[in-house]
Design a protein around this nucleic acid. Structure first.
Lengths: 138, 138
DNA sequence: TGTAGTGTACTATGATACGTAATACAGTTA
DNA sequence: TAACTGTATTACGTATCATAGTACACTACA
């Protein structure tokens, strides 16, 4: 279900946040669906429960999930209400990577195709994860 | 010339890499133009020379600049030869942020506009009279 | 009621990265 | 020679990450 790279410079909990966010955005994980418990996921990924909890806390802070003591953690309903601050932040990152992509020779057309491709997956359903090199497959 | 956030979670040297990369990509810094020396830039930014050097080393590793002992550091000529590995990496980041942008309600049209806007500022040459729409994205 | 499963909180420890500081060396330029 | 470049090394303090262990509060269920 997850591929983690424990050797990566990017913290494990942050990798988890990214992966889960992606699963939520693409609606592979649906609204109110229950996430694995911190302990079970920790055991499955052979990492520490605290690390899972940190990722869940971050996702909760960002509004992607909600947690109920004694019950579990669940996917938040997609509000789709514009969050200006977040959008500004994301656009900034986008600008950075779009610039670099163009600089590296990626064409505008290709980028637009990428957008359309992603758009088809966001809220749509199917998506497959093509991912990096190493490690830990579960 | 630079604005750094020493309190940011992002390392200073990495902020420097990003800023300089952007200046190179947008050709504000032109091929073979000399960068500030590690010591002078360190003094200007009131940070440690080692931190500058780390950023320069990273930029050199990524092919954006070259350094000559005793002379200085200079902007590499833009090769524009496709670097598959880098492109894959950038596309991956792009996918992440594009997904999130779409999820947050940014429209496809808006994203395409963003691409075109950036394209006008990258590499192509004609645009160093950046008076209007460009606005020095940072 | 008891028990197992949830989330949550806290302390402690080791490893690693970041940034600074000081020093040294090598090469270029005037 | 003197002053400027890049580069390398060691040491130190700090912060973050991840683990480990423990504890507590709440929920569900037999």
């Amino acid at each position: 279900m997850f591929e983690l790279d424990v050797r990566s410079r990017k913290p494990i909990y942050e990798q988890l946040v990214d992966k889960l966010k992606e699963l939520i955005i693409t609606e592979i994980l649906k609204t109110d669906e229950q996430l694995p418990s911190v302990r079970s996921l920790a055991q499955e990924l052979t990492i520490n429960p605290n690390t899972i909890q940190k990722a869940y806390r971050e996702l909760e802070n960002q509004g992607y999930i909600y947690s109920i003591k004694g019950k579990g953690s669940f996917v938040s309903p997609a509000t789709h209400q514009p969050n200006t601050e977040k959008i500004v932040k994301v656009k900034k990152e986008l600008t950075k990577y779009l610039s670099e992509a163009l600089f590296l020779g990626v064409s505008t057309a290709e980028l637009i195709d990428l957008i359309k491709e992603i758009e088809a997956n966001v809220g749509g359903g199917m998506l497959n994860d093509e991912d990096e090199s190493s490690e830990k497959m579960l």
